[in-house]
Design a protein around this nucleic acid. Sequence first.
DNA 1: TCTTCTCTGCTTTTT
DNA 2: GCAGAGAAGA
Length: 866
Amino acid sequence: MIRMTEPSKINSSQNVPDHQPAAGGIAARARASVGPKYLTGLNPEQRDAVETLDGPVLVLAGAGTGKTRVLTTRIAHILSQGRARPAEILSVTFTNKAAREMKHRLGQMLGQAVEGMPWLGTFHSIGGRILRTHAELAQLKSNFTVLDTDDQVRLLKQLLQADNIDDKRWPARMLAGLIDGWKNRGLTPSQVPPGEAAVFANGKGGKLYASYQERLKILNAADFGDLLLEDIRIFREHPDILRQYQQRFKFILVDEYQDTNVAQYLWLRLLSQAPSKPAAQAAIPERVEDSNPDSPSESDNTHRPEMTERAAIAAASAGPTKNICCVGDDDQSIYGWRGAEVDNILRFDHDFPGAKVIRLERNYRSTGHILAAASHLIAHNEGRLGKTLRTEDQDGEKVTVTGSWDSEEEARGIGEEIEQIQRQGEKLNEVAILVRASYQMREFEDRFVTLGLPYRVIGGPRFYERAEIRDALAYLRVINSPADDLAFERIVNVPKRGLGDATVQMLHDHARKRRIPLFEAARAVVETDELKPKARGSLRDVVTQFDRWRAQREVTAHTDLAQIVLDESGYTEMWQKDRSADAAGRLENLKELVRSMEEFENLQGFLEHISLVMDRDSGADEDAVSLMTLHSAKGLEFDNVFLPGWEEGLFPSQRTLDEQGRAGLEEERRLGHVGLTRARRRAKIYFATNRRIHGTWSTTIPSRFLDELPAANVEITESKGGSAWGGTGGYGASRFDDMEAFGSTYSTPGWQRAQANRNRGQANGQGRNGGGGRGGFEEEASNFSSTSSSGPDFGSFSSRRRGPMTIEGELVAKSTGTTSEFSLSDRVFHQKFGYGRVTKIDGNKLTIAFDKAGEKKVVDSFVQRA
DNA sequence: TCTTCTCTGCTTTTT
DNA sequence: GCAGAGAAGA
């Protein structure tokens, strides 16, 4: 059953029941042009993963083992073997980026754009597509709106208010999280275990979930969870519909299977059963609820509800499994906190009997030392499927571990190392800083701004989550669907029209009484004298404007309409008048939005897809350092990877440890593994003894993960910014312990913290006086922005460093050659800090008093005349 | 109704 | 240390 090579099929097209021209094009081309060529260059395991087409297959693909290549080659293989047409392959990913990447690579492999793969996409876009087809079975219309988190929360807030629940004690955001969690686990309101439903607002949680669902139907809206959950419900209530899809999808491929949640699992599971006639079920005895000793959370009661759910689905759909191929890596499962079930991958062969498991263990990315360090670290986890990554690459440089006195010094040191890398002629695009929490980024941003080092932040608010984009979309949503109350409410007073809370409340009352949408209520209220003349006038304007735009919609291209709406509503003007730093960027984003609409046929089509498909693009062409969280680094790779902040509490995160215990620790460890395996040639780890978190300094101890790294592959180095302990390396009581300040082998955190505190003054002195040779302009500049005192504990520390260093800094700064084209009190603009005035000039380094950001020192090339 | 001031409470993030 | 929300003033 392994190799299905039937040579006759390759050249004869009559075996393919192929009547669709587009589909035939790709399939034919695949057969003709690819031949066996696509198989060359694959290692034996990869080849096995590509060629095992029948029955369930799990490909355990470690970091850097060619996962995407296997997936795309497998699709090419299926097509070239004539086993399915492009429209018969369901191929799901988690992110749009991954879906795009696959389409791109497939296109390259098959030599053309892959328009014929209609079912290649994210779980949510495909789920949404299925739901639109059968919307009426979920009490929706096919043009339903997909709500994002913000809309969701606002809707819940209204429900809480209506129920007189204290929004302070029981925040809407928390309820949104709970509902999300339930949906991730495939639970409809009636299926939520009563105990869990009761935890919110003294037992009202379940009821609120139910009324939220009701409201969604009235608004003709679905949230992200519904896109899958409603599909599942439809599949189960209408076996004929399910069978239709089961028959259609001859092959199913799943990327990043370790990240699937229970709902996704159920969805896949239903689709992956061979279509069986309702009555005749060749029930394979399957005991999904069996305890599996390998799976860590098995004994955990909290998983019971969905386990029974799982069992029910398994029983109902027990039939031969089709050709499903899941690719994933249990060691890279880092989304447990948002509902991903590592269990799904751990028990794959259990869920899909007869599954073939193929391990890809040859790493093509990292050098020996890096791989060894990563493997050794992850080996501390229990509950793995177990893989041993190997490379045929050289050992390369050892992974470095560097301790520094505080987080500022850490940033300074990394900045210097990056400059060094740059001097060696390497590209900044090949440098990444991966942090655990986004608040760590700031320090680096400040540093890079000072150094004039180009960087880009990856992640952060997505394009369509930006306020200006959501506002613009809200206008379009109201035009498209007058019943969209959430959208109407969002923009009725944006820009300011004198229609505040009081007016909106009044509209709500009116709308509820007559059971009409807010927009219609507004139309009616304008005709009465319930509102003050001023508010009434503005509201009338709003209503007439929307009526006009809707009329124009028939005769105007949707992109033009969007532009007209933005201009006539005064929205563009609002941002043009805004003098804050990011106003220009927002206007740029609005332009980008209008541009992106061109890809869609009409307004309707655009709105249907926007929330699912829209992505930010972070100008990747420019050579710049990448700054991102460990989470968003998954799937990326760089020559040089910097990993700062390996300290207890930060990494592993204390909160994860508190909330998830052992499972949390293991997930954090996997995060470390992901971080290390991003590096091709150099991986550099850092920790600081003192870190400012939320404004206050606290003393930290090195991460336990440092102790879990293999000594043979790791080199302990001194901070380039000057060692915290006057030259001794090492960090705290660990087996690397060769350090005087903390010289002891006691290792309880409390003891270490006590030691750290006791030694602080002493170490401080050493750092300042004995550290010598540090400082210079950079030293002074980075302190410059910290205007307020750092709290009583460190008062002496701060003042001490600020005094003499400033003088030193000035001296160095004055010696920098070039003179600036700016003069004192020039008005300037800076991308990050906004508008300000030059207060001091030192060569090409300016001190600027920013209107909003305070006083900063920056290189003149980073500002322009305002 | 809009602006300014005080208070709180902080991961990770895709769709 | 700062953003975001809510309450008090203009």
